[in-house]
């Protein structure tokens, strides 16, 4: 994790990127690159794949071969890349709308196949690129342009979904917990089979602004103060104590070694 090798992963000629001021996607990119760099992978044998949305613009700023595909289909393209050449390390950037809405089917099937991909989902709980419409991960009651009276539908818990669908590794952190996020991504990269890392990110422009987070820092502070470690939540439940409603769980949800697809034997 030296400073010198960090910069080489970015296409310096393309920065600054298009993300809004304070967007957490850039932080998740940093963490991913730190983890990939720490794995000792080379730029030329790593592939970044993404779909459509804010998160999916990330591979365009990374020096490796990268595939910016159609909306929701990143996992399908990544499956093709990985199966056709298992020597390549394939990392997928995706967002909550891309992965859970239009790409939901590809997501559960990639988990089921347990194909050797690492998927990093930047969950900003909103469709950011189209201007802030409700996504399957918008929490109940939150305001977006298509849920002007508050989101009425329950949100997906993507990490639990990955666990249930059969992923070998699943973890959730936020763009505030950078050190933990790097460790989780590293663990995901190391684990053969499907690894899913959900990174909750702040979206000050499309989400925070409509939901009482007036400054970038306020939403980051919310993520810091409302994150509850999975172990703590389980302990509270064992003790029969109440888990506060407004807390979300973070941590490593599963790490297992089921047979995986697309691993070079």
């Amino acid at each position: 994790m030296s400073t010198e090798t960090f910069g080489k992963w970015y296409r310096e000629d393309r920065l600054p990127h298009i993300f809004c001021t304070g967007c957490g996607n850039g932080t998740v990119m940093n963490c991913t690159i730190k983890a990939v760099d720490a794995m000792g992978w080379e730029i030329d044998d790593t592939i970044f794949v993404s779909g459509i949305g804010c998160s999916s613009r990330a591979p365009g700023y990374i020096s490796t071969d990268s595939l910016h595909t159609t909306h929701g289909r990143a996992l399908a393209f990544a499956t093709g890349v990985k199966m056709a050449n298992p020597d390549l390390h394939v990392v997928v950037f995706t967002g909550d709308g891309d992965l859970a809405a239009i790409g939901g089917n590809h997501f559960i099937h990639a988990c089921r196949r347990n194909i050797d991909l690492t998927v990093i989902c930047m969950n900003n709980m909103i469709y950011g690129m189209t201007g802030g419409q409700g996504s399957p991960c918008t929490p109940v009651g939150k305001i977006s342009t298509t849920t002007p009276y508050g989101a009425a539908e329950p949100a997906f818990d993507l990490t639990e979904l990955a666990v249930a669908a059969g992923a070998n590794y699943a973890a959730r952190w936020t763009s505030y917990h950078v050190a933990e996020l790097i460790k989780a991504i590293r663990a995901g990269l190391e684990t053969p089979g499907f690894s899913f890392i959900e990174a909750l990110v702040q979206c000050p422009t499309a989400y925070g602004r409509r939901n009482k987070f007036r400054q970038v820092g306020e939403q980051v502070e919310y993520m810091r103060s409302h994150a509850m470690l999975l172990q703590k939540k389980r302990r509270l439940e064992e003790q029969g104590k109440d888990v506060p409603d407004d807390m979300f769980t973070v941590g490593e949800f599963v790490r297992r070694y089921r047979p995986a697809l697309g691993v070079r034997k």
């Binding site: 030296s2 400073t3 304070g22 850039g26 050190a179």
Partner: peptide
């Protein structure tokens, strides 16, 4: 910390600012 002790330890120290900076604007 990283400015002072990086040479001594021979590795990146702390670096929280660089990691959280969404715009890749902080470096040494």
């Amino acid at each position: 910390t990283n400015c002072r002790l990086r040479r001594l330890y021979g590795r990146q120290l702390c670096g929280a600012c660089q990691l959280i900076c969404p715009d890749q604007a902080i470096y040494w």
